[in-house]
Structures are given as structure tokens and as C-alpha cells.
Simulated assay, not measured.
Amino acid sequence: MAKTIVLYFSATGTTKRAAQQVARLLNADIAEIHPVKPYTSEDLNWHDESTRATVEQKQEHDGRVPVQNDLPDISGYDNVVIGHPIWWGIPPRLIADTIDKLNLNGKHLATFGTSSSTGYDRAQSNIARTIKENHYDVDLKQGNVLNSQSALKDWVSSLNFN
């Protein structure tokens, strides 16, 4: 039977709750992604152009924010799910650093975001570009914004993990 792990980054708890539900539905293990420097509520004020999150998200496409070196060993998993908030239309820059640090070759990868106002198209493109930069041979599933119970359940059932 295929093994699945859900990795997630959550600054406010919203993505954590979605990740826990996804993990339950997939009977998956779960682990949190930790930034080297945790975010404060002041860092997340998107109304202020000078806040940390705003500055980070406006970096060039190859911008990265480092994550702690505590990611789980994914070698025993067939399926990897990565959950993240959507900031300025894309995943937080630490998701690219996470993907850089994981050996995703031969894996099925699915990503999801949480947002009350943004779709997943730009986030999907961002993830696909990071996969390509790493030259991973990975089956990248279509991601989605999980902003309701029905969206979450529909997306999980669409994954068709082996």
C-alpha cells in the first residue's frame, strides 16, 4: 500500500487545520515545515509594504526563505502533499526552499493552498517552476485552494494516489 505524508507551513493555523483534515482523509503521516526565523503577526501585515512577508514575496522568481533542517525523511513515502497559505498569489518563499531540500524523484506530489480570495493557478506555476529547477522526475498533481469542506474533500478524492 502506498504511503503518504502531508507537510505543511501555517503562519496563523488555517493551513494547519486543512493539513490535518487532508492527512486524516488520506490516512497520511503529517509534519510541519518550520522557517528558520518564525513569523510574527507584524511580519504578516500585508497592508504594509515594508513588512517581512511582503518584502520576501516580492523577490525575484528564484527567491528563497530558509526552513529549519528538521524536515522528515521522505524516502519511505510514495506520495507527498505540501500545504501552504497563499501570499500575494503564490506560496510563501519557504516552500521553494522546502522543495529544494526534499528528494522528490519518483514521488507523486500534490500541493494545496489556503486563501480566502486567491485561486491556485499562479501557485501551481510557482511549484512547477521549482520542480523544474531541481530537475525532479515527479508526478505533479493539480493543486487547489482548500477554502471549504467540499473543496477539500473533492480535491483529496481527485488525487488518485496509488
Rank of each mutant, 00 (worst) to 15 (best):
T15E: 03
W46M: 14
G13Y: 06
W87F: 07
H61E: 14
G13S: 09
L7I: 12
L104Y: 00
T54I: 09
H84E: 03
W155D: 04
Q68Y: 01
N105W: 03
Q68P: 00
W87C: 02
L104I: 09
G63P: 02
Q59C: 05
E56L: 15
K101P: 00
V80R: 05
K132E: 13
V81S: 06
G13C: 09
S148V: 10
I74P: 00
V67R: 08
P85S: 08
A28I: 07
I90A: 11
G76K: 11
D48Y: 00
V156H: 04
I131R: 09
E32V: 09
L159D: 01
V138S: 02
E56M: 11
S150Q: 14
I99P: 00
W87E: 06
F9T: 11
N134G: 07
E56V: 08
G106Q: 08
A19Y: 05
G63H: 03
A11Q: 09
H135P: 01
N27W: 03
Q149F: 03
K3I: 05
W87A: 07
Q124N: 12
H34T: 10
A18C: 12
T54H: 05
H108Y: 06
A2P: 05
R52N: 02
V80Q: 03
K58T: 14
V145Y: 02
Y136M: 11
L25H: 11
G13M: 12
D48A: 06
S41E: 14
T14V: 13
M1L: 13
K153V: 15
N105P: 00
T12S: 15
I127S: 00
T114S: 09
T54M: 07
V65Y: 01
N144I: 02
G106F: 07
D70A: 10
I131W: 05
K141T: 08
A18V: 15
N45S: 04
I95Q: 09
F161V: 12
